[in-house]
Simulated scan of single mutants.
Amino acid sequence: MMRFRLTVEYDGRPFQGWQRQGHGRSVQQAIEDALFSICGEKTEVVAAGRTDAGVHGSAMPAHVEIERPFTPFRLMEALNARLKPQPVSILECAEAPGWHARFDCIQRRYIYRIINRRAPLALAAGMAWRVPAPLDADAMHAAAQRLVGRHDFTTFRSAQCQANSPLRTLDRLDVRREGDELLVFAAARSFLHHQVRSMVGCLKLVGQGKWSSDDLAAALAARDRAALGINAPPDGLCFVGASYPDLSVGFTLP
Results as ranks from 00 to 15, higher is better:
Gln107Ile: 05
Ala34Tyr: 06
Leu220Asn: 07
Ala232Lys: 08
Ser213Glu: 15
Arg50Ala: 04
Ser26Glu: 04
Gly17Tyr: 12
Arg5Glu: 15
Ser190Phe: 08
Ser26Gln: 05
Ala226Asp: 15
Arg168Met: 13
Thr155Ser: 15
Val55Met: 02
Arg20Met: 09
Val206Cys: 10
Pro134Tyr: 07
Val249Thr: 09
Glu65Trp: 04
Arg197Ile: 06
Met2Thr: 13
Leu216Lys: 05
Gly201Trp: 04
Asp104Cys: 14
Ala101Gln: 13
Arg176His: 05
Ile90Trp: 08
Leu205Gln: 12
Gly17Val: 09
Gln195Ala: 08
Ala139Asp: 15
Pro166His: 06
Glu32Tyr: 01
Gln195His: 09
Met1Ala: 10
Thr252Met: 06
Leu228Trp: 13
Ala144Arg: 08
Glu77His: 10
Val8Gly: 07
Ala222Tyr: 01
Gln160Val: 09
Gly126Ser: 05
Val131Phe: 02
His151Asp: 07
Ala94Pro: 13
Leu170Gln: 04
Val45His: 04
Phe36Ser: 00
Gly201Tyr: 03
Pro120Gln: 03
Ala78Glu: 01
Thr7Cys: 14
Asp52Ile: 07
Pro69Thr: 00
Arg177Gly: 02
Cys202Asp: 15
Gly24Asp: 04
Lys42Glu: 06
Ala78Met: 06
Gln208Tyr: 01
Asp235Phe: 00
Ala128Phe: 00
Arg68Gln: 07
Ala142Val: 10
Phe73Asn: 11
Phe4Thr: 08
Ala59Leu: 11
Arg157Met: 15
Pro245Gly: 12
Ala34Val: 03
Gly250Val: 10
Lys84Ser: 12
Leu253Phe: 04
Ala119Asp: 06
His194Val: 05
Gln107Asn: 10
His23Ser: 08
Ala128Gly: 00
Gln107Lys: 12
Leu205Trp: 07
Val175Phe: 11
Lys204Ser: 06
Lys84Phe: 14
Arg223His: 12
Ala137Ile: 03
Gly17Thr: 11
Ala159Met: 14
Arg102Gly: 10
Ala47Asp: 10
Thr154Val: 10
Gln21Thr: 09
Leu167Gln: 05
Ser213Asn: 11
Ala163Pro: 01
Val249Ile: 15
Gly12Val: 09
Ala47Asn: 08
Ser89Gln: 03
Tyr244Glu: 10
Val64Arg: 09
Ala242Cys: 14
Gly149Tyr: 01
Arg197Glu: 03
Arg176Thr: 06
Asp246Lys: 14
Thr7Gln: 14
Val46Lys: 14
Ile106Gly: 05
Val55Ser: 03
Leu220Glu: 07
Ala219Leu: 07
Arg118Thr: 13
Pro72Phe: 13
Leu173Gly: 03
Pro233Gln: 09
Met60Ala: 08
Ala53Met: 01
Phe4Glu: 04
Trp129Leu: 05
Arg189Pro: 03
Asp33Trp: 03
Ala62Ser: 14
Arg82Asn: 08
Leu173Arg: 00
Gly250His: 06
Val200His: 03
Lys42Leu: 02
Trp129Tyr: 02
Leu205Arg: 12
Trp129Val: 01
Arg177Ala: 11
Ser213Met: 11
Ala219Ile: 10
Arg157Tyr: 09
Gly126Phe: 03
Val131Glu: 04
Arg74Pro: 02
Phe156Tyr: 12
Arg172Trp: 04
Ser158Pro: 11
Pro61Ala: 15
Ala128Thr: 00
Arg5Tyr: 14
Asp138Tyr: 05
Phe103Gln: 13
Trp99Gln: 14
Val184His: 00
Arg150Ala: 03
Pro85Met: 13
His151Ile: 04
Phe4Pro: 10
Phe251Tyr: 11
Leu228Asn: 11
Ala186Leu: 14
Asp11Gln: 08
Arg117Glu: 04
